[in-house]
C-alpha cells in the first residue's frame, strides 16, 4: 500500500480571533476504524468541515488518496471518495427516502463512472442501500415521517450511496438509546468489513471503545493523544481534559 488514505498536516482554522484548530496532524490508513473524541467545542466538527471542504483552512494541507485536495470544492472531494454524515441529520426534506439516496448515485457515482447508470441499476442500488440500513419499507416516505434513529440511518445510507473510500460519521449516535447505538455501531462495523475506512466522531464512550481500532483526542483545537484506545483513555492528559482536575 502506497501511503495513508487521509493525511492531514499542520491544519489550522481560526474564526476571527478564536483559534478553532491549531496545527492538527493526523493520518488514517486504508481500511482503518478511527475514533475521534474530544469535549464540546474542541474542534471535531470544524476538523471534519475542513477535511470535507465545507470550511477553508488557513494553513496546512489535506491529502486524500495520495493527492492534495486543498482548494477543491466539497462535491469534488465527495467524487474523489470522501463522504460524511452530518451531526444533525440533513435529509433532503422534499424528496422521498429512496430519492434521497438517488442523489449521490446520480451525481457522484455517475460522475465517477463517466456514464449514467440505467434506471433499473439505480433502483437496484437504492433498494440494496435501503436494505443495508433496514429502511426498505420506508422507501416511499418523506424524511419527516422517520424516527430519529431512522433519520441517522438515512444519513449514513446517503453517505454510503456515494460509494466512498472514507466515511466520516459525525456524531451519528447522539441522542439515541443504548440498543439503537449498538445498532448503528454494528452497521458501521459491517460497512468497515466491506472495505470502507471509517472515522467516527462520538461522545458515547461505550460506542467509541467498541468501534475504534485507534483513538484520536482533540482538546481546544489541539491533538493531545493518538493511539490504541485502551492506552489513550488512561493517558493522564486525556483524563484531565475529560474529568477536570
Amino acid at each position: 500500500m502506497a501511503g495513508p488514505l487521509l493525511e492531514v498536516t499542520g491544519l489550522s482554522k481560526r474564526f476571527g480571533g478564536f483559534v478553532a484548530l491549531d496545527g492538527i496532524d493526523l493520518t488514517v490508513a486504508e481500511g482503518e476504524r478511527v475514533g475521534l473524541i474530544g469535549p464540546n467545542g474542541s474542534g471535531k466538527s470544524t476538523l471534519v468541515n475542513c477535511i470535507c471542504g465545507t470550511l477553508v483552512n488557513e494553513t496546512g494541507t489535506v491529502r486524500f488518496d495520495g493527492k492534495a485536495v486543498d482548494g477543491l470544492l466539497t462535491h469534488e472531494r465527495t467524487r474523489r471518495g470522501m463522504a460524511r454524515s452530518f451531526q444533525l441529520p440533513r435529509p433532503f426534506a422534499t424528496l422521498t427516502v429512496a430519492d434521497n439516496l438517488r442523489v449521490p448515485l446520480l451525481y457522484t457515482v455517475n460522475a465517477r463512472l463517466g456514464r449514467a447508470l440505467s434506471p433499473a441499476a439505480l433502483d437496484a442500488r437504492c433498494a440494496e442501500l435501503l436494505q443495508l440500513v433496514a429502511l426498505s419499507d420506508k422507501a416511499a416516505q418523506l424524511p419527516r415521517d422517520l424516527t430519529q434513529v431512522e433519520m441517522r440511518k438515512l444519513e449514513l445510507a446517503r453517505a454510503m450511496a456515494a460509494e466512498p473510500k472514507l466515511l466520516i460519521a459525525d456524531e451519528s449516535m447522539a441522542g439515541l438509546s443504548q440498543s439503537e447505538v449498538d445498532d448503528i455501531v454494528a452497521l458501521l462495523i459491517r460497512l468497515n468489513e466491506r472495505g470502507i475506512t471509517i472515522v467516527l466522531i462520538e461522545h458515547i464512550m461505550r460506542a467509541v471503545m467498541k468501534f475504534s481500532q485507534r483513538l484520536i483526542v482533540l482538546v481546544s483545537g489541539k491533538k493531545i493523544a493518538d493511539g490504541r484506545p485502551e492506552a489513550v483513555i488512561r493517558d493522564p492528559e486525556v483524563e484531565r481534559a475529560y474529568l477536570g482536575q
Binding site: T78, F86, R90, T94
Partner: peptide, 10 residues
Amino acid sequence: DDELAAEASG
C-alpha cells in the same frame, strides 16, 4: 432542501 448536504452528496 439543503445546499450543504447537496454538496456533500456530490
